[in-house]
Design a protein around this nucleic acid. Structure first.
Lengths: 156, 156
DNA sequence: GTAAAGGTACTCGGATAGAATATGTCCGAGTGGTGTGGG
DNA sequence: CCCACACCACTCGGACATATTCTATCCGAGTACCTTTAC
């Protein structure tokens, strides 16, 4: 699974503590990440409707919706794409007893099982939002929001 | 997810219908797969203890255990490796408020959530065995075992 | 006729190329702020 | 003193290299069978 997912998750959490746009350079410096590549990931989040971007001075990225309306699945899907983990290539169609025109992505028992596991995975991720994680972090580290805001203005 | 997983799944099912060793060339011809590359995947299954291999004439691969003792997770893990889907690189250690020596793979809330989803996925895959899939296939296509055996001896 | 020995064909196993994807970088288009000059 | 205009610095966005992983292939080591030969 792509590295950018971790960057996107933490960046979204940090943005949930801020109300003004933050440029890529600042967000990258926060975790010492390559700025241009982080920008690439943030673009994907914008395309997915999770972030909004503004150009020019005082511009940057901010959350497009409330943290409670952004699930971890939304972020993962934005970075990794909508394809499921297991991709069925229908090799059954090359075997014996094949019937032309059968969609083995639906009928193959293995594809069904793998799809079921995929769904369980997605259900877990869809059930947790950025707000949930934020509440958990604030409970265990009450100073986190203030620290984050301070570091952001320091890096600005 | 790697292509070889699908090959390994279907090959294990086919082997569950056979009691004699089957060489790579025959198994590959079954689905028109590149023989040498399929061999590579089967080697991984042998290392995982799912298959046993015998060299020489009349040699090949056969299941090492009963089909009911081989879960889909076993096969996926053998091909893809034991790492979990989401790999936490602990970028938090580069952020503010970091404490030296903290293992963020354990304490980071995102890592925990991703691990939970990973576990749900694995639980699903661990709950289905080759025997389960075989029973399902035999129920829907009673001719499948005989067809498979016939095709194998034909390709031998 | 039987048994042993040598040869042969077959199979796995790991070492070796090529292709696709992920990672990382760069520069141009657009935008808002700022300073300046005129009314 | 106020307003309009032009300039400039800043930021995003997509186009362009590099690295790593997945895909695919090839050749050598080992093994069982078969043939041959000696007893």
């Amino acid at each position: 699974m792509s590295q950018g997912v971790e960057w996107a998750l933490h960046t979204c959490l940090n943005l949930s503590w801020l109300d003004t746009p933050v440029p890529t350079s600042t967000l990258a410096a926060f975790y010492e990440l390559p700025p241009a590549y982080l920008n690439k990931q943030l673009q994907a989040l914008v395309r997915a409707g999770i972030l909004t971007s503004t150009s020019g001075p005082r511009g940057g990225f901010r959350l497009a919706r409330a943290p409670g309306a952004v699930s971890l699945l939304d972020i993962v899907t934005a970075i990794e794409g909508p394809e499921e983990l297991f991709q069925c290539d229908q090799i059954l169609s090359k075997g014996p007893g094949e019937h032309m025109g059968v969609d083995y992505r639906q009928s193959c028992a293995f594809a069904q099982a793998m799809r079921g596991a995929d769904l369980a995975w997605r259900r877990e991720l869809a059930g947790k939002t950025v707000a949930d994680v934020r509440a958990d972090v604030e409970h265990r580290h009450p100073e986190a929001p203030a620290d984050t805001r301070a570091r952001i203005v320091e890096l600005r």
